[in-house]
Amino acid sequence: MLKLEEVKTDVFNDWCPGCGDFGILSALQQAIAELEVPREKIAVFSGIGCSGKTPHFLNVYGIHTLHGRSLPIAAGAKLANKDLTVIAVGGDGDGYGIGAGHFVATGRRNLDLTYVVFNNGVYGLTKGQSAPTLAKGLRTKSMPAPAIVEAVNPIALAICAGFTFVARSYSLSVKHLKATILAAIRHPGTALVDVLQPCPTYNDLHTKEFWAGADTPDKKPRWYDLQQEGFDAVVRDPEDGGEVVRKKTAGVMKSLEGGEREPVGVFFEWKTATYGEQLAARMPLLAEKPLAEADFSGRDLTPLLAELA
């Protein structure tokens, strides 16, 4: 267990006051502190946008990549050093828009890494355009006209793409978020944590008050904890293909439920062979040590040349 101060940096944070990012940063810092992994064995990758600055506020290896490209870079690092705890973060435009191709491929690959998506429905840093998760027909204050395209459903997309741990949380429910992030990191395989969050500057629809349900008759939050309501997302027998299909279907159905309150928590969880494990079956070296620690010097090409003699 690290002290919280040890995982923070002295870099000035220029997010807007009241930004949902602060909750996510806080949960990330707490999760990293609790992880029982040396700081140098943790690498956080980010995309572009407000969330892209996150690694600069975490005292671990921090790699601020390109718009939509955190996942392939993170994957390369994980392939190079299997001992790294790899966390990628980014906005919903980053992950589900410009990076959607990588998102799907990352799910299929099932490397052991965690992806935390800051989902606020808008492109904040470019001043409030609609993001892929903003529902059709909605118009935030900086949009000239309502959205006329459907929103993507990241939970269903992730389950169908092959993510083996798919969860959602809410940025200002730091305790739930921290626990979800920790579970995601500890999950052996590719994990998604989609984090609902307010953007106080550009999203005047999904505000802190909106999520708190301040405007509803019973004043209850607009989200509820799936697991508290008894939803079982975990595949109990990883080899049982039928159960995998049933649990995936249930997770997707849950994500499509709609209604007044958003479900948060774990939608799907399946412990199956990771990319790294499967690669190690072909390359026994990988079971012994990270690629980065292997010594490839002094190789002899004689057998390769003999093939061509």
């Binding site: 690498a43 990758f45 790699i63 990549t65 390109l66 490209r69 392939p72 870079i73 993170a74 994957a75 390369g76 690092a77 392939l79 190079a80 050093n81 790294l84 690629l291 980065a292 490839f296």
Partner: peptide, 12 residues
């Protein structure tokens, strides 16, 4: 990008 990520992590 994957290759670049691996390079930063010390793999050729």
């Amino acid at each position: 990008l994957m290759a670049i990520g691996a390079a930063h992590a010390g793999v050729r």
